[in-house]
Design a binder for these strands. Structure first.
Lengths: 123, 123
DNA sequence: CCGCTTGGGTCTATTTAGTAGACCAGGTCT
DNA sequence: AGACCTGGTCTACTAAATAGACCCAAGCGG
């Protein structure tokens, strides 16, 4: 029994932003939540839509998101198995302020791209 | 000459959110920006305030943030050297929608902590 | 004059996190 | 019987992050 992943689940920091960012601020969480925004999706559908995530990371991140109450996981006892992921109220409420950020990104990505080019050029 | 870090700087995805998230969605960027919000800070001051970041990651992340136009880096040619980092207009404008998220985190971190406990308990 | 201190990093070795891809269950279709 | 389906897990490999030694050049104490 290798028991490889202790999956440390601690609220170490006194600062809540740190905690939430630690979870949400990884490479995939926000992307998964955004992908689930339109509605319920299955595991492989998420894989396809996101594209460049590994199964393990998708699985792990979904587990974290479920654990933190952002999504629910429903297993239908069929063969082949069917598992559906869907946003909870908390998940939806999170995406509200997140939308503001997405809008910002949309509005400013040109500026950023330009800054990046300038930096490269003027190096 | 090892030349170890190609520092790939590409705008691969057609989707701007992906791009912006890839950069500011790492462990440290947002934290650094938030730390710089009150005003100009020096390298070691950032180290101390953030606490658990390594020099290398701080250096690298600051470079990325400068590159993308979120902050400016000013070197005063003194000895010992003094280097100051400060938010640009873009940096400040980013923190506006970000603030909404911080507020959300503040409001919901209890709910999340509770969900996490429930998950652990009911496992 | 020697050696210590100071700030802002870089370099290297080690630990950790993420990826790719093989594998599994078990019922259906051919 | 054998191939195929989904939603994962396991293992071996690779990429990324960390810790900590090291560097530079001026100033300062003795």
């Amino acid at each position: 029994m290798p028991q490889p992943q202790p999956e440390s689940i601690e609220f170490d920091h006194p600062c809540p932003i740190r905690d939430v960012l630690d979870r949400i601020g990884d490479q995939w969480s926000v992307l998964i939540l955004l992908t689930l925004q339109p509605g319920t999706k299955r595991f492989n559908a998420l894989m396809r839509e996101i594209g460049d995530i590994s199964k393990q990371m998708l699985s792990r991140t979904l587990k974290h998101l479920e654990q933190d109450g952002f999504i629910t996981r429903t297993v239908y006892p069929e063969v082949p198995p069917r598992v559906e992921y869907r946003l909870t109220e908390l998940g939806h409420s999170f995406l509200e302020p997140m939308q503001a950020l997405v809008t910002w990104a949309d509005a400013h990505h040109r500026t950023i791209a330009e800054a990046r080019r300038r930096y490269r050029g003027g190096e």
